[in-house]
């Protein structure tokens, strides 16, 4: 279990949701290609998951591995901050 595990909660096809998926994939493919697992959860299709995770803001990114669990909200537009938040800065 050394792979980076990420959950991204989005709301259908709203533009900030699409933007967040694109931004996250770009960063991860560049920095940790093949070393991450990203699960995208659409709260419209799976509201129970949103309830369990206590999601308020969309998009919300949760890093479930490595611990500790960290959260980030927003469309993940600033690459350097997303990397810092995921602990990828010094790679």
């Amino acid at each position: 279990m050394s792979k980076l595990a990420l959950h991204l909660y989005i709301n259908g096809k709203s533009h900030i949701s699409v933007e967040a998926i694109d931004n996250l994939n770009t960063i991860c493919q560049e920095k940790v290609p093949g070393e991450y697992e990203l699960e995208v959860i659409d709260i419209q299709l799976d509201p129970d998951r949103a309830e369990e995770a206590g999601i308020l803001a969309i998009p919300t990114l949760i890093r479930t591995w490595p611990l500790p669990v960290t959260r980030m909200i927003g469309a993940l537009t600033v690459k350097s901050r997303v990397m810092a938040g995921l602990g990828l800065s010094n790679l």
Binding site: N23, I58, G85
Partner: peptide
């Protein structure tokens, strides 16, 4: 952490 726009649709 907040990075970029969001809404409260969740």
């Amino acid at each position: 952490l907040t990075v970029g726009d969001y809404d409260l649709s969740g």
